[in-house]
Design a protein around this nucleic acid. Structure first.
Lengths: 208, 208
DNA sequence: TAGATTGTTAATCGATTAACAATC
DNA sequence: TAGATTGTTAATCGATTAACAATC
């Protein structure tokens, strides 16, 4: 029934999601492809092409209703169902991730945080209890978990990944600057913050 | 003299950089396009096509020398010249960015950190002195700065961006979840950490 | 209705892949 | 030399843009 959504269109879904959310927050309930595309910085042709893959949400002569379209995009992104997460690594980056209020709001629930430092056990970060990383395996055995977030030093990352995989997570969100070896059925999303800086540097350098 | 480098090829430069660095760290000094492409997960055809845009670095029958190729990629990325940065926002994310040792090593020097909390003034984070954000404008007037990093709450981001632009930065690396309005000559790289999680969620959801 | 704007088809453009002659 | 592997050309594939009939 659904048309297939091309990889490039998928890559734009988070962008559409963000802009539509912003429009909703601003109380806009209808927008033309021309206006939205201009805001985002793409052509209206591309926007209509993309949106039409999600189903028919536009109204001839009127534009798109923000609400239903946002609902559809959220749905495609899987945001209308909760995800249970564990976070491993309570350093600065881990804390930053745990503290991002946008996650909870979108159904990404950090159920527990694990850290190598036993001193942190028993404390709470952004409302989530911290436990020693030695208890990660046992926790996962008891509590089904969708996603494991790795915010540890690179040296620890593979071992944590192995424990997460053995514990049955379906996906790993990895911030450690190292490639993880995992079985095919486990998704890995690498977030290389430094890649952004390299691209900025490249763009700066191209200008000269 | 240089062939132009296509946008998609540019986007892969940080990946090439990372893998070549890894090879060099491992002491590998020569690799075929077949082997490197397999490691990265692209076709060898694409790799050769990309690399040929950088100049002639391969040797028929032998493959590519890691050192000179890495040198060339670093050069394209602008890593062979230092960049002066200021970081605004010393919360968890700001601290995580400041503490990433990879930046200093690649010539991204965080000269000073600014924060709204005057209590932090006079302290040091990852070797960089912290000053009150009220001094940002005066600092930039005195110290030419290439890049401003914004790791503040969304509400403060635009005002900081304005101060950075007035202070003459050439680029802004923005972690705040808000679009910044800046003049055309200033580059903005938005790093939306949450976009990664949305894409992970999308991929999880597509599997079902 | 007249005006606006979608959804879609066709045309263009760009990127990836395949293939192989050149060559170390 | 024989074997390996590049650099590049041509073929394929996919994505973007343009254009416009359909329609609210």
């Amino acid at each position: 029934m659904d048309k297939t959504i091309s990889p490039r269109t998928m890559g734009r879904l988070p962008i559409y999601y963000r802009y539509l959310e912003e429009l909703q927050r601003m109380g806009v309930d209808r927008i033309s492809s021309d206006k939205l595309a201009e805001r985002i910085g793409i052509t209206s042709s591309q926007l209509r092409q993309d949106l039409s893959a999600f189903g028919q949400f536009g109204h001839h002569g009127l534009g798109y209703h923000v609400g239903p379209l946002l609902e559809r995009v959220s749905d495609l992104l899987g945001l209308n169902q909760p995800h249970r997460l564990v976070l491993v690594g309570a350093g600065n980056l881990g804390r930053a991730v745990a503290s991002y209020e946008g996650f909870t709001r979108r159904g990404f629930l950090i159920k527990r945080i694990f850290d190598a430092d036993p001193q942190l056990a028993g404390t709470y970060i952004a409302g989530a209890p911290v436990a020693p990383v030695t208890e990660l395996g046992a926790y996962l055995a008891a509590e089904p978990t969708d996603v494991g977030v790795i915010a540890t030093p690179a040296t620890a990352a593979q071992e944590i990944a192995d424990t997460l995989v053995a514990g049955g997570v379906r996906a790993i969100w990895n911030f450690a600057p190292v490639r993880l070896a995992v079985p095919d059925h486990v998704l890995v999303e690498h977030t290389h913050i430094s890649d952004s800086l390299l691209l900025l540097s490249l763009r700066l350098h191209m200008q000269d």
